[in-house]
Design a protein around this nucleic acid. Sequence first.
RNA 1: GCGGCCGUGGUCCAGCCUGGUUAAGACAGGGGCCUGCCACGCCUCUAACCCGGGUUCAAAUCCCGGCGGCCGCACCA
Length: 578
Amino acid sequence: MEKCQKIMELAKRRGFFWQSYEIYGGESGFIDYGPLGTLLKRKIEQKWVDEFVRKEGFMLIDTPVLAPSIVFEASGHTTYFTDPITTCKKCGRKWRADHLLEEQAKISGEGLSLEELDKKIKENNVHCPECKGELEPPKFFNELFKTTIGPYSENIGYGRPETAQGIFSNFKRLYELARNKLPFGVAQVGRCVRNEISPRQGPIRLRELTIMELEFFFDPENPRCDKLVEVKNEKLRILPEKLLVEGKDKPVEVTVEEALKEGYIKSEWNAYFMVKAKKFVESLGIPAEKQFFKEKLPTERAHYSTQTYDQLVELSCWGAVEVSGHAWRSNYDLKMHMVYSGEDLRVYIPYNEPKKIRKFLVKPIKKAFVESFGDEALRVMRLVNLTPENELVNSLKKNGHYDLKGDGKTYRITLNHVEVEEVYVEEKGKRFLPNVVEPSFGLDRLTYATLEYAYSEKDNRIVLRLPRNITPIEVAVFPLMTKDGLPEKAVEVYRLLIKHGFTVEYDESGSIGRRYARMDEVGTPLAITIDYQTLEDNTVTIRDRDSWKQIRVKIDNLPKTLEKYFKENVGFDDLGKL
RNA sequence: GCGGCCGUGGUCCAGCCUGGUUAAGACAGGGGCCUGCCACGCCUCUAACCCGGGUUCAAAUCCCGGCGGCCGCACCA
């Protein structure tokens, strides 16, 4: 049996996870976490927050799953999360309508409406590339989950496909809470929904998933990472675009310093977080040599991304699977939220000395914008305001126009739209949009991968070798026999450990071996047994999940000993020497 | 969505081709006996044919549709 099947079997049987709505036949793309899975998932989340928030001094927030449509219009998701799809009438295959048009008719399908696409497909005799069949009129498929908010059917809302927009839309307030200083980081862990066309692969491709992400804001003119010294000699297994286009498909191992020098990684902060990601995934029991980072090619990249690396982990049945993404989002999101909301999201940093400079003052002429861009006039004007003046004016002087790219379109700005004045001003500081680097982790995938790497078999039984600080149950307590006062003593020990905050399970059923085996199977690292010697000298045995070795400890010392094991990471063998 | 394979107690599976007793087995689980440290043994109990139609005197079995799973194609910011 494949390892993934064994994991699925174990997950169902022992209550880690299973398919949702089973009694109604199930629904693809949704899973339920059972008692143990819920504990495991939460512990991995806590570990992530500890690493990416607490240790870094960043902030953690919690925003709604649902948002009014304008949020995702601004973020670009309503546009870029949508693809025109056409179906072949003969063979049923689905194709990107705009791609077919470009390939077969050499016409750009970008920004065309469905009717226009359909018309051009028919005019140019575009057909199914596979079977030459006739094509159906294209339809939009959008992966956003749509809903209405409140009783008004025109009040459209969407489920978030990422938690990031909840951070970007709060930027003003968060910057204030960061006491108006860059850089700073804001993290969020939460449920997201994506209406996948055809989810497969159990817990790997879900329609509802939990994402852990960090948005790190920094000054693009000061992009140096001050923590780089800590990681510059760390090794990364990396497959950058440069090598991908050469046809290479095996990652190379380089130090962070080399990766930056070679230009493989464009942002120092991205490199820093990639190292953290590698170490974090390693701490879940997934060895570094089973991970690598692969750069996304420009055609695969998200609309907001300047550079993206995926962190992949080798899994038994599904090959290398993405568990985190490391995107350099430039200022895309803040810029678009600024354009859509009209709020000034720029930060202001004063100069030490005021600077006298010569610059162009660009004044948009409202009437001309309305005439050219109709409903979009306001947003286009805001985009113009965010365009570097020199770039705009130089192009206007040279070409008579400036092609303003934004919001999925290109707007042609001409000399009719603006008044340009050259002025001398004294500037006391700079006003700009911060850049963003985003490490983003799929918690469900990590939970699954953790289970897969913990899985082992010993003497025909399953032992989950989970790292000790993420196991659902920390300690088991067993009486050796169910007589002679042993269960009573064991319950006492159980209560003692519960009182000290440990997650403990008491079990007196069946043979002692069977109870050990049951706990091994769910990864419980320590089992305490109360035997006849306990009644004499108040000591108990502690048994190690991985070695099956035992040590003997006084009950009075038990909480302290366990503390050393779980919090201070003292090795099992050394516990006996305390 | 298309094509291939598949769906039986909590789990893993036999039975289906060739329709017909109380749907077999293993593991897990509950209760009991036993048990001085690794799924011990014995007794006992609980527990299943994905859903809906059709054919038939009779359907887990044959047919149709749906749902779900795996693989391939497509999709996957």
